[in-house]
């Protein structure tokens, strides 16, 4: 476990998220949450389905804007930034591992991993170099030209992680990463993320999987229920 640094990487201040605001099916997913994410920590946001943990995760990761409240990434207030600026911060700061992996099955492993780099100003050799490193670190070099839809579940998982790492993010966000994995693949995934954390990457999980919650790399837990934090623990 890496010790948390002093200054927070992300600060969330009294954030609410309301879906379908004003409509009959209005949903208050997040209700006035304040929290911070520190450099080098492994944070678990746990809670049952519908508790608001994924909504909180997407707000932290600049994928959606809060209905009210403030989010600071470093010293930048991101809540009111333009879409382009928000996308740029998301691309430079965060890497995402999705519950359903969300690979494009017709694209090769290499192209899937390269996806986040296409809209950057990086040169093609720089992109190739980044992709090579990410693919090698996930030990899937031998599958780089295979279509993502035709490789094993474990290889797909590694491809998704390589894609999350290719932009060399400060923070990796993993939403229910073990939900569809067997014990062996889950353990492998957690080992990879532990190694990343040891290298200095901050990791945030949203999960209710005990295998993740009780893993020794976890440095802090926030329990979310009905859109509010009901428990904070540090093992």
């Amino acid at each position: 476990m890496t010790a948390a640094a002093e200054s927070p990487l992300v600060r969330v201040e009294d954030v609410t998220k309301i879906y379908h605001l004003g409509a009959p099916d209005e949903v208050r997913a997040v209700r006035g949450i304040s929290m911070t994410v520190s450099r080098g920590e492994v944070l678990v946001i746990e809670g049952p389905s519908g508790s608001g943990k994924t909504s909180l995760l997407t707000i932290i990761g600049c994928m959606s804007r809060p209905t009210s409240g403030q989010v600071l990434v470093g010293d930048r207030r991101v809540s009111r930034l333009s879409e382009t600026a928000l996308t740029s911060i998301r691309r430079e700061t965060f890497g995402f591992i999705f519950q359903h992996l969300h690979l494009i099955p017709d694209l090769t492993v290499k192209d899937n991993v390269m996806l986040p780099l296409f809209p950057t100003r990086m040169t093609v050799p720089e992109m190739e170099d980044r992709v090579d490193r990410a693919i090698r670190s996930m030990r899937i070099d031998h599958r780089r030209s295979a279509r993502a839809g035709r490789i094993s579940g474990g290889e797909q998982q590694r491809t998704a992680i390589a894609r999350a790492l290719v932009n060399e993010p400060t923070i990796v966000i993993a939403d229910e990463p073990t939900a569809h994995l067997d014990s062996e693949l889950s353990a492998e995934l957690l080992d990879i993320l532990a190694e990343l954390n040891r290298a200095g990457t901050t990791i945030i999980f949203a999960t209710h999987d005990p295998r993740v919650i009780e893993h020794p790399i976890v440095s802090r837990r926030l329990v979310v229920r009905d859109g509010i934090i009901v428990e904070k623990t540090s093992p």
Binding site: E83, T87, L115, P119, R163
Partner: peptide, 16 residues
């Protein structure tokens, strides 16, 4: 639609 969503999620903006 799913592919467009994936592109957005991995760092493409609407213009891209």
């Amino acid at each position: 639609r799913r592919e467009i969503g994936i592109l957005k999620a991995v760092g493409w903006d609407t213009g891209d």
